[in-house]
Amino acid sequence: MAFAMDEDITDRPSLLESDLSCPVCRDLFRDPVLLSCGHSFCEDCLECSWKHKNTKLCPVCRKNCDGETPIPNRALKNTTESFQKEKGWRITGAPQVICGLHHRDLQLYCIHDEEPICVECVSLHSGHDIKPIDHGVQYCQELLELKVKILADKLESFKKLKKRCNETVNYIRSQSEEAEKQIRQEFERLHQILKEEEASRIVALKKEEEQKTKMLKEKIESISRDITTLTELVQSLRREMTAEDLVVLQV
């Protein structure tokens, strides 16, 4: 009997372990948060206890916590982790396989809320479609397959859209290159026409210059002959003016 009592005492959690345990799940705190009333809970446990509740109450003292944002209790988290390391326990973030609120096995699945529940949670899911957990697994698998199919179809449509966009880019590039080629050819043709026109006009200008120069030279030669004739006449008259008066009268 004494041995049984000793074993029972040994199996009991220490006072420190009790202080470091969540009042909801009775397990060591995981990401503890603190309420204004001074009570701390695992963040997930508190969210689970408040889920589907119209009024947010402290699970221990039942204080109204509506509009309150739980504060991360870092000191408690550090103390819990230190205690686990001291005991040689592995700190794990693995999800619970039992109900955090009732500590019962998760044997059912709520289709409406898409979450596993225990038998005592059924009252919290009044009017919801409740299935055995294996049906819930099948439902989740079918739902995931549907979502995967939707995402795969969307992925395929994105791939096709990307392909069309790339084809459009290539088409625009080829059209631009072809247009650039035509523009260059057109300007080269225009440049050739302008060069030919330039040469033609220069030839015409030179020809006109030669013709006008020739005419002016001929006129200059004619004027020069007239000047020579008039000069000779003037000189002749001056000679006669110096002759005797009779000669002048006879002129």
Rank of each mutant, 00 (worst) to 15 (best):
P59F: 01
C45W: 03
L46Y: 01
E17K: 08
E17V: 06
E68F: 12
L20Y: 13
E43T: 10
S49E: 09
C65G: 01
K56A: 10
K63F: 03
R26G: 10
D27S: 09
R12S: 14
S40F: 11
R62L: 05
N64L: 04
P13D: 06
D19C: 11
N54R: 13
S49A: 13
F41C: 11
S21T: 14
G67C: 05
L34G: 07
W50K: 03
C61G: 05
S14H: 03
V24Y: 11
D27E: 09
L57N: 08
E43G: 04
D31A: 12
N64E: 04
D31H: 12
V60P: 00
D27W: 00
D66W: 04
C42Q: 00
L35F: 02
C61V: 10
P59T: 03
D8W: 07
I9A: 08
L20M: 14
F41L: 10
V24C: 14
T55I: 15
L35P: 02
C58K: 00
K51P: 01
G67N: 02
R62F: 02
E17N: 05
S49T: 15
C42W: 00
S18N: 13
V24W: 09
I9Y: 08
G67E: 01
S18R: 15
V33N: 05
P32L: 13
D19A: 12
